[in-house]
C-alpha cells in the first residue's frame, strides 16, 4: 500500500523544525498542516452550485480577488470558474462527500487538492516587506486589504497569497514540490530585511 505523505512531511524532517521565528525582526513563519483544500469548479451563475455552497457552509460564492469566510470555512476566489474551499483537514472528505451529493444535478466538480499544495502562514511586522522581496504585487495594507486573495509568483514560483484578516498575516500556498525552496527562501529572509 502506498504511504500517504502530507506536503510538508519531507520539509519538517529536513529542517527538524515546525516554526521559523525571528525574534529580532518579529517575523514568524508557520507551516500549516491542519487545513484541507477543496477545489470547486463550475459556473458562478449555476444556481445549484450557489445553493450547495450556501447550504453546506453558509457562504456566498465570492467575486474576483475576494473571499468569503464562515467560521472554520473560507471560500477563496481563484479564477472566474474556480474557487478554493479551505477547511479543517479532518472534515475534508466529509464535506467533499456532502458537496458531491448536493452538486449532483449540476456540471460543477469538486476535487480534494489538499496534498497538492503546501501552506505557510507568514506573520509579524516585517511579513509584507519579506514577501515584497519576491512578489511584484502591491501588498501594502491599503492596496491589499483584508480578505484579498491573489494567484501570482512569489520567489519565482507560482503561489496563492491570501490575507485573511487585518493583522500582519499572509497565508501562502505553493506547489508541494516547491515547499522546500519556498521554505529556504523564507528562512533566508531575516538576513534580507
Amino acid at each position: 500500500m502506498l504511504e500517504h505523505r502530507a506536503p510538508l512531511d519531507q520539509l519538517s524532517r529536513a529542517r527538524n523544525t515546525e516554526t521559523l521565528h525571528d525574534a529580532d525582526a518579529g517575523l514568524r513563519v508557520t507551516p500549516v498542516t491542519d487545513r484541507g483544500l477543496l477545489l470547486l469548479q463550475g459556473s458562478p451563475e449555476d444556481a445549484v452550485l450557489r445553493d450547495a455552497i450556501g447550504r453546506q457552509i453558509g457562504a456566498r460564492v465570492p467575486g474576483p480577488q475576494t473571499t468569503d469566510i464562515r467560521g472554520e470555512y473560507a471560500l477563496l476566489w481563484m479564477t472566474p470558474k474556480e474557487w478554493l474551499l479551505e477547511l479543517p483537514a479532518a472534515e475534508t472528505s466529509a464535506v467533499q462527500g456532502a458537496l458531491v451529493a448536493r452538486l449532483a444535478p449540476s456540471l460543477a466538480a469538486i476535487t480534494d487538492i489538499s496534498d497538492a499544495l503546501a501552506c505557510f502562514d507568514i506573520g509579524g511586522d516585517p511579513a509584507m516587506d519579506v514577501l515584497m522581496t519576491g512578489c511584484s504585487l502591491d501588498l501594502r495594507p491599503h492596496a491589499f486589504a483584508a480578505g484579498r486573495v491573489a494567484r501570482t509568483a512569489i520567489a519565482d514560483v507560482h503561489a496563492i497569497i491570501w490575507k485573511p484578516g487585518i493583522a500582519h498575516l499572509f497565508r501562502c500556498w505553493v506547489d508541494r514540490s516547491f515547499a522546500e525552496h519556498f521554505w529556504n527562501w523564507l528562512a533566508d529572509s531575516p538576513a534580507r530585511w
Binding site: P64, Q65, T79, P80, S136, L137, A150, R151, T152, A153
Partner: peptide, 11 residues
C-alpha cells in the same frame, strides 16, 4: 480584467 494590474512576466 479579473485580477487587476499585474506585471508582464505573469502573462
Amino acid at each position: 480584467p479579473w485580477c487587476g494590474p499585474r506585471d508582464e512576466p505573469e502573462f
